[in-house]
Write a protein that binds this DNA or RNA. Sequence first.
DNA 1: TATTGTTATACTCTATAACTATA
DNA 2: TATAGTTATAGAGTATAACAATA
Lengths: 159, 159
Amino acid sequence: MPERPRIPGESPVVSVSDRRLRGHFGYQLKRAFNVIQSDLARTLKPFELRMLTYTALVLVAENPGLRQSQLADAMEIERPNLVAIIEELERRLLVERHRVPNDRRAYALEVTPAGRTLVHRATAAVETHEAAFLQGLEPETRAAATEALKHIEKGRRRG
Amino acid sequence: MPERPRIPGESPVVSVSDRRLRGHFGYQLKRAFNVIQSDLARTLKPFELRMLTYTALVLVAENPGLRQSQLADAMEIERPNLVAIIEELERRLLVERHRVPNDRRAYALEVTPAGRTLVHRATAAVETHEAAFLQGLEPETRAAATEALKHIEKGRRRG
DNA sequence: TATTGTTATACTCTATAACTATA
DNA sequence: TATAGTTATAGAGTATAACAATA
C-alpha cells in the first residue's frame, strides 16, 4: 500500500486510540503536569531557576529562619535532595545559611535582598504564564480542579 | 530558648507558610501528581510495570500494528526514550515487533496473549486504586478537574 | 532529503543508606 | 539514642545529536 506523500515537518496523520486510558485521572494528570512543568521550566529559565529552586526560594522568603529539614518537609522532598538546591541558591547569593544559636546542628535560612528581588520578578513571570494557561477556563472550573487536586493530595497513601 | 521534648518519630510541629505558592496551579498540580505517581507505581509494582510500560502496553493492545514513532507521539515522549520501554515489554514476551512489509524501516507492534492478560489485570488494579483516590469527590468536581486538565494540555506551548 | 529505529549521552528529580556533629 | 545536615549512589524520566537502514 503506497504511502501518500507528506509535507516535510507535517505531523503524520495518526489517530492513536487512547480510549482505555483517557478516563484515568492519573493519565490526565500526568499529561497536564508535563505540559505545565516544561512550560514553567521555560518561564523560569531567564531567571536561571528551576521549579525546585524557585519553590525553595519562595518558601525561604516567606518563612525567615526556616531550617532545611522544615523546608524539605514543606517541599515534600527528601532532605538529601535539598542540599544541592540550597547550595545553588547560596552560591548565587540568593539565600544565606545562619547557624542557629541554640542548636548548632541546624541552619536558619534567610533570603538576601538579591534573592527577594529575583523571587518577585520570577513570581510575576510565573503568574503571567499561569494566567495564559488558565485563560478561557471558567473560574468555577478552575476552583473545582483545585479542590480535586487537594483531595488527591490529602488522600496520599503512606508507607 | 529550650526546645520542648519531642516523641521520637513524631513529626515536628512546623507550620511552614506557602501562601505565595499554594495559589499556583502548577504547584498544586505537581503535588497531586507526585502523590498519584508514587501510588500508581505501588499499584503497578506487583505486575512489574511502571506508568510508562503500562501506558505503552495499553496503547499497543488497543492499537494493533502501531509503530514505535506513533506510540512515542501518542505518549508524548521522545522516540529514543521508547526504545528501552519496548525492549522491556518484548523481553517479557508481552509485545512483539513485526516488520512492516511495505516499509522495512518500521516495526508493527502487537500485544501477545500474555500481554493482553496482564494489561487486563493491571487495568483492574489501577481502576480500583483510582476509585479509592477519587472516593468522596463529587462527580461534578472530578469532571471539572478533567476539563481543566484537558484545557491545560490543549494550551501546550511548542518550541 | 526525510523518516524509523537506534545508540550515546546528559540533565533533572527522586529515594535510600550511611556518615559527622551535635543534641 | 535521636536529629540536622551531608555524602554517595542508584533509579527513573526527559531531551538532544548523530548514526545506519530504508524510503
